[in-house]
Amino acid sequence: MSNAISLRGVTKSFGRTEIIRGVDLDIPHGQRHAMIGPNGAGKTTLFNLISGRFSLTSGTIELNGRSIDGLAPHEINRLGLSRSFQITSIFPRLTVFENIRCGLLWARGYRYSFWHLLGGQRALNEEADRLIERLNLEDRRNVPAGLLSYAEQRALEVGITVAGGAEIILLDEPTAGMSHSETEYAVALIRAVTEGKTLLIVEHDMSVVFGLADVITVLVYGEVIASDVPARIRGDKAVQEAYLGTEAA
């Protein structure tokens, strides 16, 4: 079985500073994969490389066996990869409904059409409403997204990310800044909407990571020091020293 995401010898430098220092990583289809590591380890940078926001310095990244070298973010998205951002990234002046519908448009083949009136696209609108219901945002349907609470905006961003039905989902700290109950709700939501998909998630909350992930990769100073099932990561000496130990202390 081919991998959904496959990294080989990936490096990324900004000027003289090498942020990612030779990462090899395989994520099979359908796996929930979490990436952890101390601040500045390069987790978000790696996300930006996989989603095409940054270009590689060296190495290759393949999605479903296809190299993404030189592709723009929207082209990578069309290959079936969708992502969220560490800092909430939504369309603040559009309503919740329109945010979700914008997430659906390309995937449903509307492209740059200026001859379809969206009001008449019943199937599209119903699909957007169904997703809004799953996100538990029905009450906020017609509110500009910029006016939502923080947790609601995070939920909306997860919604936009999964709306198009991308097969590979990248979530960058989806629960950052949330209260305990909000986090619980967000994890349940993520679990539900990424069912059967390949998920790569960056997260600091260890309860989220160990509760959600099939496999955990630990990134320290731009290198993978361990990649294994949660139980073995917990017992890994190097990980404890480099990361969990300092966190616990």
């Binding site: 989603s51 926001r53 723009a72 973010p73 929207h74 998205n77 069309r78 969708s82 992502r83 951002f85 990234s89 939504i90 369309f91 603040p92 002046r93 559009l94 329109e98 519908r101 914008c102 997430g103 448009l105 390309w106 995937a107 509307y110 492209r111 740059y112 059409s113 200026f114 001859w115 379809h116 009136l117 969206l118 009001g119 936009i160 990310t161 709306a163 198009g164």
Partner: peptide, 24 residues
């Protein structure tokens, strides 16, 4: 009220997010 019109609003609000829903 067309897909192009809405995505024009979307790119105005957040062009990066628009890229990651598949639009150039």
């Amino acid at each position: 009220q067309t897909p192009l019109g809405r995505m024009a609003n979307a790119t105005r609000d957040n062009f990066e997010r628009a890229q990651f829903v598949g639009y150039d």
